[in-house]
Amino acid sequence: MERVPILKIGGILLVSIQVDLHDQSVLALQEDLAEKISATGAHGVVIDISAVDIVDSFIGRMFATIASLSRLFDADTVVVGMRPAVAITLVELGLTLDGVRTALDLERGMEILRGLGVGTGATFDARDA
C-alpha cells in the first residue's frame, strides 16, 4: 500500500495526494497525520488534491474527518486545488464540507493560513525571532 507523504514547512503540514486513494490509504493517512500534528505541534494543515480526479463519499468524508481531527490539536485545515468534477461530485453527494477551508491553489492556501496567524508563531517563523 502506498502511503501519502506528509511534509512540514514551517508550522504547516503539507499533504499532497498524488496517488489514487484507496480506503486503506485514507485510513493510514488519517493516522499518520494525527501522529505528525501531535509530534510537530503544527498549527496548519494543507491538503493538496489538485491531482485527484475521482472521489467517493468515503474520501469526501476524509476531508471533514481530518479537519475535525486537526482542530483537536488546534490546527486549521485548508483543502486546495479541488478539480471542478470533484467539487460537483461532492456537492451531488451532499458533502458541503462545512468547517473546512478551501483555496484555489497551494499558494492561496498558505496565504489563508498565514492570515490566520499560522506559521508566524515564535517557534516557527524566523521573523518573530
Partner: peptide
C-alpha cells in the same frame, strides 16, 4: 445553490 457550494469547495 449547488454551483455556489461547488465553487466554495474549490476555494472561490
Amino acid at each position: 445553490l449547488k454551483t455556489v457550494v461547488a465553487a466554495r469547495l474549490m476555494g472561490a
